[in-house]
Design a protein around this nucleic acid. Structure first.
Lengths: 207, 207
DNA sequence: GGATAAATTAAACGAGCGTTTAATTTAAGG
DNA sequence: CCTTAAATTAAACGCTCGTTTAATTTATCC
């Protein structure tokens, strides 16, 4: 039972682990699916996770990387554009929401497992993904320094960069609604989201 | 160190446990705060939880009871009203949102700890609170049986009864926005929520 | 074909958890 | 007073988890 497998069995264990983990984590959660259970579902030993990913968190981050990496890259490029060519709030929302629509599993995982309180898990996520965007968003949302923000609602965007976007996308992507919008649907949602948050911010100004 | 305390020390350990638990659970989570830690924070032994609440879940449900109990009661009364006097979607939303605004900690706890996937915890919550409402809401949202529903969006309400309402209330109650709406603010939010969900449902109709 | 590297596993480690048991101290009641 | 009930704890139980170690088998390369 032990030892390198014969080359007859051509299977990519690393890939199988990623795939099964995604499904398990999706309908339970990162914390509630044990390494042992995942390994058993794939049919390998728990030690394979250490071999391929270092540890459990490493597996998780590797799972997000395929989608999150390119998304962060696109947002970075949008942020780097000169001010007069930089998209407005709706432009950034569009990027997030299209990613969410194309990969509905992603925001749900992030919301549940990464941004849940008390993780310490958050650190690794911020380090690799959100952390690259947060300073630039904060600068855009800042107190009107040089190259001042055009849209005060960029504070919303600043929250997006810290991981709020699953909070926006989640409710409409929930199983109960079985939501798979097309491009027109996304546009309508962006519009309503902007209005929703504008109303919330206005209504919440209490002091 | 062991034994019944002298009557000089008049403290309500049961109440202290509930209070400290609420704060700990709020900025971490039910699963991540251990009974041992909670007990240490109050300054008693972990066994006190068993003594007063049976088990950890018992403590949690007891914590929700003060607010959830009356809320469920009010909704039940609204549902029991004759059809022509029964509130519409906005009327039910108002009840939920006012409760959420008055007790912002509640929806966050429910969302994180009770409705999180894979709980088994859900059962105890549904049994005591949501379960009383779900059948009646489902009937109202149903396929137009006798006493047919006036508003097709009652399907949204039906989801509320199953615990979706924290999903509505959470984003606007999140720390980041520091939201404490007054009555007028609540009315505006209800309006926008209805429109938001109408848009989502319309956009999501794909088949 | 012998040495080295890759892929895999069984088994144990150590810590933390919720819970249970039994002992213990004080208060209350007759 | 003496008995019984209430409130509390120390200590142990049994379980699960993520991780680590060391052994093992096969492939690859000179």
């Amino acid at each position: 039972m032990r030892g390198r497998p014969p080359s007859a069995a051509t299977r990519d264990v690393r890939l199988e682990l990623l795939g099964v983990a995604r499904h398990l984590f999706l309908d339970r959660s990162y914390r509630e699916v044990s390494l042992r259970e995942l390994a058993a579902a794939v049919g390998v030993s728990p030690a394979m996770v250490r071999y391929y990913f270092g540890d459990k968190q490493g597996l998780y981050v590797a799972m997000l990387r395929d989608v999150m990496g390119p998304l962060v890259g696109r947002i970075e490029r949008m942020l780097a554009a000169p001010a007069d060519q930089r998209p407005d709030l709706a432009g950034f929302l569009r990027e997030y929401m299209k990613t969410a629509a194309a990969n509905p599993w992603l925001p749900r995982l992030i919301l549940r497992d990464v941004l849940a309180p008390g993780g310490g898990f958050r650190d690794r996520f911020v380090e690799e993904f959100a952390g690259k965007l947060a300073p630039k968003f904060a600068q855009l949302a800042g107190r009107g320094g040089p190259g001042a923000p055009l849209d005060p609602r960029f504070t919303v965007i600043s929250m997006l960069s810290l991981g709020l976007w699953p909070f926006l996308a989640m409710p409409i992507l929930e199983q109960a609604l079985d939501f798979r919008p097309d491009d027109a649907g996304i546009e309508r949602l962006i519009d309503h989201t902007v209005r929703f948050f504008t109303a919330a911010t206005a209504a919440g100004a209490q002091t």
